[in-house]
Design a protein around this nucleic acid. Structure first.
Lengths: 222, 222
DNA sequence: ACCTCTTTTACGGTTTCCCGTAAAAATATG
DNA sequence: CATATTTTTACGGGAAACCGTAAAAGAGGT
């Protein structure tokens, strides 16, 4: 079994159960961080001491509080960690169930497994750990199997996200146009923006801009 | 100490820690439900058997899944429970940190304490239970003390909510106007709707309708 | 270089939003 | 009952969104 495992999870009410679960699958060294920054430091320290972690189990969203942090989400943490220790195994344990988000975790961050927090997630987490250790094919849980098949979100790019974000800030097309020009984002003609927004509206079946933002906010895109 | 306590919490990763916490403050009978409907049934059954629960600890949001449920949130659960057993003590244990929501829990549902899931919430939960049992004044934790003082949400009424909801569904003012007429909601002239929306835009410092929906969605109002 | 296909931008016409003003209706007040 | 005050509704002009079409610019292939 894995020897040294790090948990990145802000809620104490959850980390307690995760620690317990790890003990039950006989993991000897279990460490825990409540902030992404702390988790990253521990990873680096362990690496430097030649006793690197075998596995990182991370949440995605962390509550902001008084502390100023460099890394503010599981995505950012994993990205940073992979740069200093590319061979580390990663499991994401989060309540997120939006297909495109989970997909991007596998495709862009190269995570090894995803377990969705739910009514029976601790047994699933244990299973995933064991499968991952045995190098078995991780068979995605029912909750997320559809997510990986879901080809629908194949082409929502960062461009669309910036566009939606600007819209949700209350900017007009003209304002977004000049904002994009300043940032060097192309296309930036107000007509092109209009066309792109129109595609998004068709895609998300939105009647108008307000509706579009409401929908994409629900999806967690913005 | 309380004898019989019910936990309503869908995430197993959290309920495990809560059960553990209750054991540590020497509560003898600890029961747990993953669905609001189940929790309500247990309450009624216990009442019928003349062995009612002393305390209900409930989450607010429950993940929807295949099961059809009558009660779908902690608010609905508590409201239903208070009708059959008004004297029961209630603690809400949730990640929600929006001031007006917490306020309404105290004012409208008459909950006895609120503990916000966070980096150090299990000790807080224990403390709240003990204070509540000793009938001490519950002093709100730092995280939510400001919430109760917060007078800012002075009168966002259900009227505004329906209005915002309709907007976020992509309806035009005309459509909302006739919708309101059908439902007997007044005022319903498109000009009045416009005026009301304008007040909301001033209040929330929104540039336009899109911005307004983005903001209120962030606040969890819609 | 030329042609083709795609992407980006530009330009009208229509609808809806946005905002101020004012009339009409409802409510309150003496 | 008559007169203020507030609330609701109506109207009008300008800005932005909405929608189709077409021109300009760019990319790729022969």
């Amino acid at each position: 079994m894995f020897h040294k495992v790090l948990i990145a999870e802000d809620l104490d009410s959850i980390s307690i159960a995760v620690v317990k679960a790890l003990e039950e699958v006989s993991i000897l060294e279990i460490h825990h961080a409540k902030y992404c920054d702390d988790a990253f430091l521990k990873i680096k320290k362990a690496l430097h001491d030649n006793q690197p972690y075998d596995l990182l189990i991370s949440d995605l969203s962390f509550k902001p509080d008084h502390r100023e942090n460099k890394l503010n989400s599981g995505e950012e943490l994993i990205e940073a960690v992979k740069k200093v220790q590319p061979n580390i195994k990663t499991i994401v344990f989060s309540i997120e169930d939006k297909s495109f988000r989970i997909k991007s975790l596998f495709n862009n961050l190269g995570i090894n497994a995803y377990v969705c927090k739910g009514r029976d997630s601790i047994p699933e987490l244990k299973k995933s750990i064991q499968h991952l250790y045995n190098n078995e094919e991780i068979k995605p849980s029912a909750e997320i199997s559809h997510a990986l098949r879901d080809k629908s979100l194949f082409e929502i790019e960062s461009y669309d996200i910036s566009l939606l974000k600007s819209l949700s800030k209350g900017l007009t097309l003209e304002e977004i146009s000049s904002e994009f020009k300043d940032s060097g984002i192309i296309p930036n003609g107000s007509s092109s923006l209009e066309k792109r927004i129109n595609k998004l509206k068709i895609y998300f079946k939105a009647n108008n801009n307000v509706h579009l933002i409401a929908i994409t906010k629900d999806l967690g895109l913005v």
